[in-house]
């Protein structure tokens, strides 16, 4: 199998790697880039554990070939923190609310929730539920996750309002 030279930007860092054509973006991130925070829960697009943002849109990294990401900007869970000493408001809220139990679904859900809140910091309950409909969590019953997203959204909206005032 011939390898293809792939250049992508992951969490703001330019990466180049050689990948085989059949390699999924998920496998390339986990095995070539060493970014194992993105999880493989089903490998067929049913669970959402491998959700990453590619050029601004959330996708299942298992349902995309690495070569299809040529030139793309990718955000994974490892890039969610604004800096190494600061947690994203969603991460803070997940801690507080107990929204992460076994944690295997958390990277995908956090990425999905970020997409949701970036567009709409104050989503309705219905919008939160709809936004997470492609992410399976088997530990929490989702209740704590919904709470955490609401809390983070409120804080992000407040911070945004403050920065506009300032």
């Amino acid at each position: 199998m011939n390898k293809i030279h792939l250049e992508i930007t992951v969490n703001g860092e330019a990466r180049s790697m050689m990948v085989e054509g059949h390699r999924s973006l998920l496998d390339a991130l986990r095995e070539e880039a060493g970014l194992t925070g993105t999880k493989k829960g089903c490998d067929v697009g049913d669970c959402g554990a491998c959700t990453v943002i590619v050029d601004g849109r959330p996708v299942n990294a298992c349902l995309m070939l690495a070569v299809e990401a040529q030139g793309a900007e990718i955000l994974t869970i490892e890039g969610l923190q604004p800096d190494p000493d600061t947690l994203h408001p969603l991460q803070e809220a997940f801690m507080e609310h107990g929204a992460s139990q076994c944690g295997f679904c958390s990277p995908g859900i956090l990425i999905m929730a970020k997409c949701l809140l970036d567009r709409n910091p104050l989503p309705s309950d219905e919008e939160i539920r709809f936004g997470l409909s492609g992410n399976i969590c088997r530990c929490t019953g989702y209740t704590k996750i919904f709470d955490a997203i609401r809390t983070a959204g409120r804080r992000m909206a407040a911070a945004r309002a403050q920065s506009v005032e300032a």
Binding site: L35, T36, G37, T38, T76, I77, E78, L80, Q81, L87, Q91, F94, M95, S100, C102, G103, S106, P107, L110
Partner: peptide, 8 residues
């Protein structure tokens, strides 16, 4: 949990 939500 901190490790789980940072992907580490």
């Amino acid at each position: 949990v901190i490790e789980k939500i940072t992907g580490e």
